[in-house]
Design a protein around this nucleic acid. Structure first.
Lengths: 350, 350
DNA sequence: GTGAAAGCGCTAACAA
DNA sequence: TTGTTAGCGCTTTCAC
């Protein structure tokens, strides 16, 4: 195969503008110490020749790679893609991440790694060595994996942890899961519910605990008990079904249920209808995540909306700001989730 | 910022194995002229040191970049992401594309470009100059854009055109839209329908024409007329609604409708129900694409399933094979779409 | 079969 | 403020 070379290089620009390579480099990198006149001349040549720097060469020169890696859990992501249930986590990450990257001349690359693998370090090291990204965005359940964060810190790579509050290396970003669960609970309390059940997600995800905590807080604030109203799930449909059954079969069943995932909420809906009950007349349901399908359920589900695009955009901004030596947020970045009220919640029927 | 260097380079490996850089390079690139004994030694050192080549350096050295760019339409893709209607085109591309890339040590990068922009060439040139990808995957409506294909040919970059049959530069891959439309039509004919309407997609997409052609063929083969049974849409919901109304209000309305997109099929469903008609008793509906939401419609829609993941995987394989100098498919690669029969189609009620 | 040399496009460090 | 020099990690020549 013909060896493909850069068609227009910094050299061509320098020759055209009649300046040194270094001056062109300074212009490209918006460095100081360039007279406006020179700057004009160089920029004109760049535009004229249609010059665009090669990121490979930039990286080789010792500067940035303009690449940011978004790390997702392999197993879960592939399962989501295969099942075609409409989970748009990756899409929303791309929406927020790619567009924000593009604004700054960066590129986002999606990478999948096995959480459970003992060779997770090898995988990550490999990706870093190959790509040499300027930053890495960690998503649950990787966000607080010490194997990962330590590696990144050791390599001196900027990183952001989505769904994490812990201080430490990298930027912590959260959608305020605790507040979101409170919001959902308060919504139901406001509708007159007093026995509000909660289906928790996998303990492997830190945010599962936060959601339970938020629910407990709101219940306590309203003077309501939580005894016997918590069921354990793992985010999946089957686990949601089992949890819903447990809750509905209890001595004093709830009149409303908050599920920590859309799949579990949908499972709950299915259970309720199988029993000939009506939603929301007999039972209200609030789901977490707001993936597309919950809007097509009957009734459409009231749901906590995760601002994934927004939080990813913020993560990218943190990383790029750090790269550029600009000031960065000190504490955790909080992008609060919101509640989309739909037909699955309503006042208790008498 | 501390200048980050590769931790383990080819030099370390060479030193550890006691051979020259060149020999290591030969091993990495699976080149001949290396004694098995040397090969062993070098591979052992690579494993021991956890060496992974830097793609930036590989590219700079004049070899591949191990990057493949997947080009999607900016406007449409962002609109899909924003609307959160569950369109999983990009996810399916990633599923097929990323995983196949990974098998060969490649990476897939999603890029968005404006179709309608007059600076599409500038955008593409910029992406190519920056990334220097080994290949580009074109998706509709870019697949046959001569501005793009000519540019790619001129630059000598491998590329694949998804949803294209035309011979010419690059690999043509198709999901056999014509056959898919035939399949849908035959399904309805088999159920006893004789007046089968068709809602076409945007003429900007070549595949819209193929689908219409497939429907006509199958109708003709069954000895059925198509007169007054074709309506024009643009893939969007609103256009589908208008088209469905036109069809249903005609003098001799169809008893079944095939829509060229899920959104248009859903719009048709809505129209039909507004009129108090039943699906499929009064009207059968077949949709195209099979995005997740059609499975959650009531009734779930019978749909043509686009094998996006599979076709993207094939595209990646073509590009990589060409890079490696291996034999490549001569004609267009056809990955036929299939029909998922669900509740929206049935025999005509008497 | 193997190694030494030069160079890819760019940037950092230094000199002017 | 500007230009010069020396690499970055790798692959290609081309010798041996």
């Amino acid at each position: 195969m013909a060896r493909r070379r850069q068609s227009v290089t910094i050299r061509h620009v320098a020759a055209d503008a009649g300046v040194s390579l270094q001056t062109v480099s300074r212009v490209i990198n918006k460095e100081p110490n360039v007279r406006p006149e020179m700057l004009q001349r160089v920029q004109a040549s760049i535009a004229k020749l249609g010059y665009v720097p090669s990121i490979a060469a930039q990286r080789m020169g010792g500067s940035r790679s303009y690449l940011i890696v978004a790390l997702n859990d392999r197993e879960r992501t592939i399962a989501d893609w295969r099942s075609r249930q409409g989970t748009d986590w990756v899409d929303q990450m791309l929406l927020g991440g790619m567009l924000t990257c593009a604004e700054h001349g960066y590129r986002l690359i999606v990478e999948l790694v096995d959480t459970h693998s003992d060779h997770i370090e090898r995988e990550l090291t490999g990706a870093i060595a190959a790509l040499q990204p300027d930053g890495v965005i960690l998503t649950p359940p990787h966000s607080e994996n010490p194997l990962i964060t330590r590696l990144l810190e050791a390599q001196g790579i900027s990183f952001a942890r989505i769904g994490s509050l812990k201080a430490g290396g990298g930027f912590a970003l959260t959608m305020d899961d605790e507040g979101a669960a409170r919001l959902a609970t308060e919504h139901l309390v406001g509708l007159g519910h007093r026995r509000i059940g909660f289906i928790a997600g996998s303990a492997e995800y830190e945010l599962s605990g936060w959601r339970v905590a938020g629910w407990r807080q709101a219940m306590a604030a309203a003077g309501l008990p939580t005894e016997g109203l918590l069921a354990q799930g793992d985010f999946g449909f089957a686990s949601g079904r089992a949890a819903a059954i447990a809750l509905l079969d209890s001595a004093a069943p709830p009149t409303a249920i908050i599920a920590s995932s859309d799949q579990m909420a949908l499972a709950t809906l299915e259970c309720v209808r199988e029993r000939g009950l009506d939603v929301p007349a007999d039972l209200s349901i609030v789901s977490f995540d707001d993936t597309p399908i919950v809007r097509f359920a009957h009734p459409p589900l009231t749901a906590i909306v995760q601002p994934i695009a927004e939080v990813t955009a913020r993560a990218v901004e943190c990383i790029i700001a750090e790269q550029a030596g600009r000031p960065v947020p000190a504490g955790p970045v909080v992008v609060p989730a919101t509640l989309a009220v739909r037909g699955s919640t309503g006042p208790l029927a008498d």
